[in-house]
Write a protein that binds this DNA or RNA. Structure first.
Lengths: 340, 340
DNA sequence: CGGAAGTTGCGAACCGGTTCGACGTTCCCG
DNA sequence: CGGGAACGTCGAACCGGTTCGCAACTTCCG
C-alpha cells in the first residue's frame, strides 16, 4: 500500500508538502499540487485511517450502541439504526456498531480506546447504566430516548405524552367512551422504558379529562403469548370499542387475533397504533398510527452529535432535549363506535 | 488520557518494558509486572486503538456490508447482522457497519484506508459488483450468499436447492397435486438474487419428478401490492391446495389475505414458508417453514474470516463454499389437501 | 537599491503504541 | 574459576500521517 512518503517521492516533494497539497491547509503552487495529485492517482494512495487518527485525534467514526434485549422488538430498532447510519455517512462518518449485551463495558471500551469521535445511544432507559460512563467519556454523546437525568448529553425523543393524548382525543372525538391501551411487557417497563409510562399516564389523564374509561394492560412482545394477551383483553372488556396499541409485537399480532374473533376494523373496533410508517408497510399493518419517526430521530441525534464533535457548538452551549411532535397517520382503521 | 508512557513512568520502567509486561511477549519479572499492572489500574490506562493499529497493522475491526435495497425486506437482514456482530465480539472484534447504497465505493474506502481487518458481505448477488474490489483488497472476505464466481473468498449460504426440494416433497407426501410457489419480486431476481432461482428451479424439478403441478409467481415485497399479488394468485389458481412462500413480505401478509378470503391453514390450504424461526416468532407467522438460519450463517462467516485474519489457515488453503442444510420446522400449517 | 512582506517548500517533531537488538546480571556447568 | 546461556530491561527505530517553525526566494515599496 502506498504511503504519503511514496506520493511525495513520486511527486518530487517532501512529505509535508504532499500533505499540505492534499489537505489545502497551506498555500501550495498549482504546479506542485498537480504533481502530487497525479502521484496519488497513479499510486492509488489512500491515507491510513489509523495513522491519521493518531495524528489528528479524530477517527471519523461514530459509535452506535444498540441493545437487542429479550422482550424487545428488534425490527423496530433497525429503523433507528438506519437513520443514524445514513445520516452519519452523509456527514462523512462511519458507524461502529456495538450490539453487546453488556453495553456499559462495551461503551467504556470504545470510548477509552479512542475508536470513536462520538456516541449515539439507542434504547435509552430511564436510569440507563451507560449514561454515567458516557458523561465521563471524552467524546460527546447523543441519545434517542429520554432518561431521568439529561445532563451532559443531547437528547431526542418522540413526545410520548402528546402521543398518548392524541390517541385518546382521536377516539373520543369519534364518540368512543370505553377504550383499552395495550402497552409493552412488564419487563420493558421495569428495565426503565419510561416512554411506556409517559404515554400511558398522559393517556389516562386525557381520558379522565374527557370522561371516558381507559383500561390499561401490558402485553407480551412474543408469540404466541401476545395473541393470548390480546384475546384475554377482548374477553375481559366486551364493552371496549377502541384499541390503542403501544407495543409493536401486539400491533403485528392484532390482524390475526381480530380475524380469529371475526372482528374487523373499524366497523367492530377502532384501532390506533404507535409505530413508524415504514413499520406499517413492512408488516402490512392496516391501522392508523402515531408516527414514531425513527429515521428522523436518528438523523437529529447524529446531526447534533457531529456539530459537537466538530466544535461548531461552543463547549459550554447547553445540551438540548428535543421532542418530535407526534402525528397521526390515518389509515382508516377508526370510526364511530359500534352500537352497544 | 493516560498513555503507556505515563504507565511506564508511574511504574518506574521504560515504555518497552511496560508494553512487554502487558502483552507478555517477553519474560518480565513478577515484581515489575505487578508495578505495571498497578499503574495501569491507577491511571485507568487503555491503549489507543489508532496507535496500536498503526504499530501492528491490526485494527480488530471487521467491516460488515449490508445493503438495504428497495424491494428487499429489511427485518430479515437484521438477523444476519446480529449473527455476525455477536460472533465477532465473542472473538474480540468490533463491527464497522456499512449500509451505504453505493457498496462498491464504501468497500474500497474501508479496505484501502485499512480501517478493517476483514470483510463480511451480506446480500450477495450473483454477479456482485463488490466482489472484484474485495478480491483485490488486502483483507480477507467472507460472504453470506452464493455468487457466480467464488474465487478468493469464503462463501456460506443456505442450500436453496435442497430447500426447494424439501418444500415440494413435504406437500407431495401429504397428497397435494397442485401447488404454487411465491417468489421474491422481479427486481430482486434481476439484481442477481440467484437464491430465488436456485430454490425455484429445484422445486420445479422435484415437482416434475413427482408428477405434481407447480405454479410459480413473483410477488411484491411491499404493501399493499403483495396482498393483491397473493389474491390474484388464489383467484387464478382455484385448484391449488398448497402454498410455498419464498418471500418474507408475502409470508407476513398471508395471514390477512387468508383471513379476508375466509381460508384457514391447514384445513383449506397448506402453507410452507422459508424464513427463520426468529422471524416467525417476531411476525406471528403460524406456518411451517424451512429454517433459513441467518444467525448460524453469520456465525460461520465470521468464524472463518477470523481464522484467515489471524493466519490460522495457510494463505494457500483453498477457500470454502459451505452450504447449510435446510430443515423444516413444523408449525402445523400443512395437512392433507381438502377434497376438490 | 535596501528592507519589509508575502509565498512556497522543507525538516523535524509528534501522536501512542510495538518490536528489535543490545547490554548487564545471574546462574549453571565443566 | 571462567565461559556460555538464560533472563530482564532499556534505548531506538518504526508504523504513517499532521503540523510547527524556519529558510529561501519573490515581490513590492519607499
Amino acid at each position: 500500500m502506498a504511503t504519503i512518503g511514496d506520493v511525495a517521492q513520486a511527486a518530487g516533494v517532501s512529505r509535508s508538502t504532499a500533505s499540505y497539497a492534499l489537505s489545502g491547509k497551506r498555500a501550495i503552487s498549482a504546479e506542485v499540487r498537480r504533481r502530487v495529485e497525479d502521484a496519488v492517482r497513479e499510486l492509488g494512495y489512500t491515507p491510513n485511517a489509523g495513522a491519521r487518527a493518531l495524528a489528528t485525534s479524530q477517527t471519523m467514526v461514530i459509535g452506535l450502541l444498540a441493545q437487542f434485549l429479550e422482550d424487545e422488538f428488534a425490527p423496530a430498532m433497525l429503523q433507528y439504526m438506519l437513520g443514524v447510519s445514513n445520516t452519519a455517512r452523509e456527514l462523512g462518518y462511519d458507524i461502529l456498531l456495538v450490539s453487546d449485551a453488556d453495553g456499559t463495558r462495551a461503551l467504556r471500551r470504545i470510548t477509552d480506546s479512542r475508536m470513536v469521535d462520538g456516541i449515539v445511544l439507542l434504547n435509552v432507559a430511564e436510569r440507563d447504566e451507560r449514561l454515567p460512563i458516557l458523561r465521563s467519556a471524552a467524546q460527546p454523546g447523543a441519545l434517542v430516548g429520554l432518561p431521568a437525568d439529561c445532563t451532559g448529553v443531547d437528547v431526542f425523543d418522540l413526545d410520548f405524552e402528546e402521543a398518548g393524548r392524541l390517541m385518546v382525543d382521536h377516539l373520543h372525538r369519534l364518540g368512543h367512551r370505553e377504550v383499552a391501551l395495550v402497552s409493552q411487557p412488564e419487563h420493558v417497563i421495569e428495565r426503565g422504558g419510561a416512554y411506556v409510562w409517559r404515554l400511558q399516564n398522559a393517556a389516562l389523564e386525557a381520558a379522565r379529562a374527557r370522561g371516558i374509561t381507559l383500561h390499561t394492560v401490558s402485553a407480551s412482545s412474543h408469540q404466541p403469548d401476545v395473541g393470548q394477551d390480546l384475546n384475554a383483553l377482548l374477553d375481559a372488556r366486551p364493552g371496549v370499542t377502541g384499541l390503542l396499541i403501544n407495543n409493536e409485537a401486539a400491533a403485528a399480532a392484532l390482524p390475526t387475533v381480530l380475524h380469529q374473533r371475526g372482528l374487523t376494523a373499524p366497523s367492530d373496533l377502532s384501532v390506533v397504533g404507535r409505530y413508524s410508517d415504514e413499520f406499517a408497510r413492512t408488516f402490512s399493518l392496516p391501522y392508523s398510527s402515531i408516527e414514531s419517526a425513527p429515521d428522523r430521530l436518528g438523523r437529529m441525534a447524529v446531526r447534533q452529535l457531529v456539530r459537537r464533535i466538530e466544535g461548531d457548538v461552543a463547549a459550554d452551549e447547553p445540551h438540548v432535549v428535543r421532542f418530535v411532535t407526534p402525528e397521526l397517520v390515518d389509515r382508516g382503521s377508526t370510526g364511530v363506535p359500534r352500537p352497544a
